[in-house]
């Protein structure tokens, strides 16, 4: 028994000290959780770590996307309305690339392989665009599909979800550091953060990827989840809140008016 216990203790000690034995993870994300609460207006997170000296750094932060509905507007009788609706699948929900140097200064094959071209070519290639024609799903041909993929890229760039920021990573000796801007429209879920170190000779080494968690909290989480999973209860709650607030505030104002103006107040409908 004693031997067993000793062994167990040793095993425990080994387990405890293992993390100290290897070097700290080469990449840290601080903070590594983004909370979307009622006061959320966007956030920033710092990505830093160590790379071999003299290396250039590419940071790619991406999150998987959902199928997105897109509409194409056209002029119908002088008015702009939707003339075609499609669904775009396969595009990320979040895609930011930060580099320590101009992408043009990096080996083209590295840029291509990492899928970080300045014009998001890697993303348009991933897009699968389908339209429904009389209950049949039709995959759009390349040129038309690219139009929509470009449109979605523009929308996501405007929302701050997609960006390519050349020179946004600062490298000092073997240390690198960059600040990711997380916009208010950020999708909930995990954002994968990958770091590539590009040596002066063009050799590429990938550092261990990290995860940035984006989660709703508090009222945003409670109301958002309820509205999605139990819309009837949410609707009833919205009505109950409105009725209560309406009656309480109306009475409060009547009371205040009596207090301040010494009159019965003015009804909104008179």
């Amino acid at each position: 028994m004693r031997v067993l216990r000793l062994l167990a203790l040793l095993a425990g000690l080994c387990w405890l000290f293992t993390p100290l034995a290897v070097a700290a993870p080469a990449v840290t994300v601080e903070p590594n959780t983004i909370n979307v609460g009622i006061d959320f207006t966007g956030a920033q997170t710092t990505v830093k770590g160590t790379v071999p000296e003299g290396a250039q750094v590419i940071i790619k932060a991406s999150a998987p996307g959902h199928p997105i509905g897109l509409s194409k507007k056209g002029r119908v009788g002088g008015l702009w309305m939707t003339v075609e609706s499609v669904t775009v699948d396969g595009m990320p929900g979040f895609y930011q690339v930060l580099t320590s140097a101009e992408l043009s200064a990096m080996p083209p094959e590295v840029v291509r392989e990492a899928g970080v071209d300045p014009d998001f070519a890697a993303l348009t290639a991933m897009a699968r665009v389908t339209a429904k024609h009389e209950e049949q799903t039709v995959v759009l041909e390349a040129a038309a599909a690219e139009d929509y993929a470009r449109g979605l890229i523009d929308i996501n760039r405007q929302k701050g979800l997609y960006s390519i920021r050349e020179g946004a990573v600062s490298v000092n000796g073997d240390r690198f550091e960059a600040v990711l801007d997380i916009p208010a429209a950020v999708p909930r879920g995990d954002i994968k953060i990958e770091v590539l170190a590009v040596g002066p000779d063009g050799t590429v080494s990938a550092l261990e990827p990290q995860v940035l968690k984006v989660a709703s909290i508090g009222l945003v989480k409670g109301l958002g989840e309820m509205a999605r999973t139990n819309p009837v209860a949410y609707g009833l709650l919205a009505v109950a809140i409105a009725l209560t607030t309406g009656l309480v505030i109306a009475n409060l104002f009547k009371y205040l008016q009596k207090l301040i103006f010494k009159d019965e107040g003015v009804s909104a409908h008179h």
């Binding site: 959902h66 199928p67 997105i68 509905g69 897109l70 509409s71 194409k72 507007k73 056209g74 702009w80 939707t82 609706s85 669904t87 929900g93 139009d147 929509y148 470009r150 449109g151 979605l152 523009d154 929308i155 429209a185 999708p187 909930r188």
Partner: peptide, 14 residues
């Protein structure tokens, strides 16, 4: 409109 391609409301999103 600024952009002829827009999100279809009520589909996809987050």
């Amino acid at each position: 409109p600024e952009s002829l391609i827009t999100l279809t409301a009520g589909k996809g999103g987050h």
